[in-house]
C-alpha cells in the first residue's frame, strides 16, 4: 500500500514538472522540429540553433531581460529596506493608531491590483503636474507601487513579533537605541524572513504583467515577462530558448532558497 501511494506521489510530481521539462527540451529542438507542430518531448537531435539565434541576432531580447532585472531588483531593494523599519515599528514600538494602520496594511494585500488602478493613475497624474516629473510610461510607475506594497511589512512583522520582548528590553536598559537594536539584534534573527521576502518578491515581479500592460505605452520599456508574448507570436522558432533563459534565474533562486521559504512562510502556525 505504502509503495503504491509513493508511486502515485511520484507520478503526481512528474505531472507538476512536466510543463517545465517540456519547455527545456523544446528549447533544444531545431526550427523545423519546433514549427512541425506535433507534440513530443524528446528532441530528434540536440540542437542549439535557438540559443545561438537569440544570443547573436536578437540583442533586443537582452534589452527586455535587463528591463526585468532593473524593475525586479529596485523593487526588492526598496521593499526590504522600507519593510524592515516599518515591520519593526509595527511589532515592537508604539505609535498613534498603530493597530488601525496595520489593519489597512492587511486589507491592502487582499485587493487585486486592478482595484487601485485608476485612483493610482490619478495620483500619478497629480504628482506629475505638481513636481513636473514624468511617471506615466516610465518604470517609476511600476517601481513605486511595487516598493510600497504592504506584503513585505506584514511578513517581516510576523517574524519580529516572535522575538521575545525581554531581549529588546535588556538591550534598552544597556542604553541601546531602537536603531541599534534593529541592526544588531533583530536583523540577524530576521535573515530567513528577509530571504523569504526576497524570493517571493523576485518571483512576483519577475512575472510582472498587470502593471506593465497598464502603465507602459512604449513597447521598448516592457519587461520580458510581458514581451515573451510578442516573441511567441512573432518569433516562435526561438520562443522556447527565450523562455528557458528567463526561467533559469527564477528557478535557481527558488531552489537555493526553498529552505528559507519553509521557515519564512510558516506564519500561520499551530498554536
Amino acid at each position: 500500500m505504502k509503495k503504491l501511494l509513493l508511486v502515485v506521489l511520484l507520478i503526481i510530481s512528474l505531472l507538476y514538472v512536466y510543463p517545465i521539462i517540456f519547455t527545456f527540451t523544446s528549447s533544444f529542438m531545431s526550427y523545423e522540429e519546433i514549427m512541425s507542430g506535433n507534440i513530443h518531448i524528446i528532441p530528434e537531435e540536440f540542437n542549439l540553433q535557438q540559443y545561438y539565434s537569440i544570443i547573436t541576432f536578437k540583442g533586443e531580447y537582452f534589452h527586455y531581460f535587463l528591463n526585468s532585472i532593473k524593475l525586479t531588483s529596485i523593487i526588492i531593494f526598496g521593499q526590504v529596506i522600507i519593510g524592515i523599519f516599518a515591520a519593526f515599528a509595527f511589532a515592537k514600538m508604539d505609535f498613534v493608531a498603530r493597530n488601525l494602520i496595520f489593519i489597512l496594511y492587511i486589507l491592502a494585500i487582499l485587493l487585486p491590483f486592478q482595484v487601485t488602478l485608476v485612483p493610482n493613475y490619478l495620483v500619478f497624474d497629480k504628482i506629475q503636474r505638481l513636481i513636473n516629473i514624468k511617471i506615466f510610461d516610465t518604470h517609476t510607475a511600476i517601481i513605486l507601487p511595487g516598493i510600497f506594497t504592504s506584503f513585505g511589512v506584514i511578513l517581516l512583522r510576523q517574524f519580529i513579533r516572535n522575538i521575545p520582548n525581554e531581549i529588546i528590553e535588556t538591550a534598552m536598559l544597556d542604553g541601546a537605541s531602537y536603531t541599534k537594536i534593529l541592526f544588531k539584534i533583530v536583523l540577524p534573527i530576521l535573515r530567513p524572513a528577509i530571504f523569504t521576502l526576497i524570493i517571493l518578491t523576485f518571483i512576483d515581479n519577475w512575472n510582472l504583467v498587470e502593471q506593465a500592460i497598464i502603465f507602459l505605452d512604449s513597447p521598448s520599456k516592457l519587461p520580458l515577462s510581458v514581451f515573451l508574448e510578442n516573441i511567441y507570436y512573432n518569433d516562435f522558432k526561438v520562443f522556447y530558448a527565450g523562455a528557458v533563459l528567463y526561467i533559469i534565474p527564477s528557478l535557481i533562486l527558488f531552489i537555493k532558497g526553498e529552505k528559507y521559504l519553509m521557515e519564512g512562510l510558516n506564519i500561520g502556525g499551530l498554536k
Partner: peptide
C-alpha cells in the same frame, strides 16, 4: 525531490509556459 517538483511551478513566469 517530490516536494521540490511540486513546488517548482511557483517560480515559473506565466509567459514562459504559454508555449506548453
Amino acid at each position: 525531490i517530490v516536494k521540490l517538483s511540486i513546488m517548482l511551478p511557483i517560480a515559473v513566469p506565466s509567459g514562459t509556459v504559454v508555449g506548453f
